[in-house]
Design a protein around this nucleic acid. Structure first.
Lengths: 158, 158
DNA sequence: TAGAATCGTCAATGTGGTTGTCGAAAAGGT
DNA sequence: ACCTTTTCGACAACCACATTGACGATTCTA
């Protein structure tokens, strides 16, 4: 209004991006809670995604999440206590213990994917499909390409 | 709906938003570190912003950040140890101890604002000023209005 | 086969968050 | 003025999530 260009101040951009992220994640977990997964936290969702249907060892999980193997092991402990993963001995390597999704873990993953599709459809309906694609394309252009490294936790506090 | 248009999968949207946020914050702190503030972490930046030039009590800071007054007090302790804030007694209210920015704290805030402007200018140059404004407008439309509540930490883990 | 790398775990520590409690000080109602 | 309620800052205990360093056991490799 008073700004002749109408530009947002610079500090608003990261805040808006975070607000968008947070809004989506909050809605995801509200839905997951309503669908039988009330104990799942955002950090757990990232870990489940990183484990994947093929499973992973604690060390591998740590590499995928960008954290130490010890931290990954503790996260696996918590997910195990919540019933989302189980540990199985590897018959080919006595050192390895594979963290594998339980049926409950798979269910959470399937539902998450479904909910994300619905949320994206909401955004597409509100903004227009093309505007949403533009936004995604713009973000993809401004972020490091192989940014499917899910390492949110711990990064904030250092 | 199928996607003959090559739409992004739904789960990519939050990841892209987070990647954008993280990219900006990482660049901010790389710059801050180069400009004499290597110990400042993302969480600290949020707290400094919430304290502001007018200062705030621990309780008020807690309300602004959406955390308990105890947590806010600990964060103030940490910032005090790093030399970014100081505590002064309130002459009108013997209970209150106002957390106020030191010159170093003000310097960090000023530099942060400057860096954010530069980063936004980079995005505007790469995407086009209008596309960036569209992105910001879209995000503003999809996020709760008064989202200047800086409560990132703790939210993730619950 | 000896040496190096990897796996999972234990231990100690740092940071940031949460309740609950408490005394001191301010504010409010009668 | 007095008593009650609220607010403030602090302390204590605890939890979540990360770190580094060390360790025995196992596997890979030169």
């Amino acid at each position: 209004m008073s700004d002749p260009t109408g530009d947002e101040p610079g500090f608003a951009l990261p805040l808006l991006l975070f607000a968008g992220f947070r809004t989506l994640i909050d809605r995801l977990h509200a839905e997951l809670a309503a669908q039988g997964h009330p104990d799942l936290r955002p950090a757990h969702g990232f870990a489940l995604q990183a484990i994947g249907r093929a499973g992973a060892t604690a060390s591998e999980l740590g590499r995928r999440l960008g954290v130490s193997k010890q931290a990954a092991g503790k996260t696996a402990d918590r997910l195990e206590a919540l019933g989302y993963v189980e540990r199985v001995d590897d018959s080919h390597d006595a050192r390895r213990k594979v963290v594998r999704l339980t049926p409950r873990g798979v269910d959470a993953l399937v539902r998450s994917a479904q909910i994300f599709e619905e949320l994206r459809a909401e955004w597409a309906a509100a903004l227009g499909a093309q505007r949403l694609r533009d936004m995604e394309a713009g973000l993809r252009a401004m972020t490091p390409g192989n940014f499917f490294r899910l390492d949110a936790p711990g990064w904030f506090t250092g």
